[in-house]
Simulated scan of single mutants.
Amino acid sequence: MSGEFTAEGGHGAVPTEGVETGQGAKPSRRAWPLYEVFVRGKRGLNHVHVGSLHAADDEMALHNARDVYTRRNEGVSIWVVRADAITASSPAEKDPFFAPAGDKVYRHPTFYAIPEEVPHL
């Protein structure tokens, strides 16, 4: 088997020559948007970021996330979010970004008396 191969996306050797592409039917995998995947392990727990994947649309991303990240019935809920729709703070901006909360001591529960009957607080 001769031809060009690439290990795109960590999925092993993918042929890049002599492969039927459907000329214009769908965008190439490189043009597919990146999705971030979040899975909730059990009811009542938070969704946790488990990885990323490329998909042509939201529905394909959801199905691929199910197949890749919940193979052993680990989850009860999956969220997929286009990575370009996420706005996040930078770890380098930690001090200036979160500094305003430090001088608002009334937001911290240090001024309240907690009864002994209240567990886990």
Rank of each mutant, 00 (worst) to 15 (best):
P15D: 10
A25F: 14
R30L: 08
A65C: 09
H120I: 00
E59P: 00
G44M: 01
G3V: 09
F5I: 12
I86G: 00
A101S: 14
I114D: 08
L121C: 11
V14M: 08
A92P: 02
G10P: 10
R107Y: 01
G102M: 06
S89E: 13
Q23T: 12
G9I: 05
E8G: 00
G24P: 05
P91E: 14
M60T: 13
V105Q: 12
L34T: 13
Y35I: 01
D57F: 01
A61L: 05
P96C: 06
S28R: 09
G10W: 14
R40P: 03
E93G: 01
G44R: 14
E8C: 03
E17T: 15
G3H: 03
A25L: 13
K104L: 13
A83V: 06
G51C: 05
D67V: 05
R43E: 13
Y112E: 14
P109H: 02
V50P: 06
L53R: 04
V37A: 06
S90P: 01
E20I: 07
H108D: 08
V80F: 10
T87V: 14
A88Q: 09
W32K: 07
H11R: 15
V39L: 14
P91D: 11
E17N: 06
P27L: 13
V76W: 04
N46E: 12
Y106T: 10
G10M: 12
R40N: 03
P119K: 10
V19D: 04
E93T: 15
I78M: 07
D103K: 14
E59T: 10
R30P: 00
V48R: 04
P119M: 02
S52V: 14
H108G: 10
Y69M: 11
P100K: 09
G22K: 04
L62V: 12
H49R: 05
Y106I: 07
Y69R: 01
N73Q: 15
S77P: 02
K26S: 08
P27D: 09
F98W: 15
S89R: 05
P91F: 03
S90M: 14
M1R: 10
N64Q: 12
K26T: 10
D84V: 11
V50R: 07
D95Q: 15
V80M: 09
V48A: 06
A101L: 15
A99Y: 12
F97L: 07
G51Q: 04
P27W: 02
R82S: 02
K26E: 15
G10A: 05
I86V: 14
H54Y: 08
V39H: 02
G44C: 02
E36Y: 02
G22F: 01
R43F: 08
I114Q: 11
G102I: 02
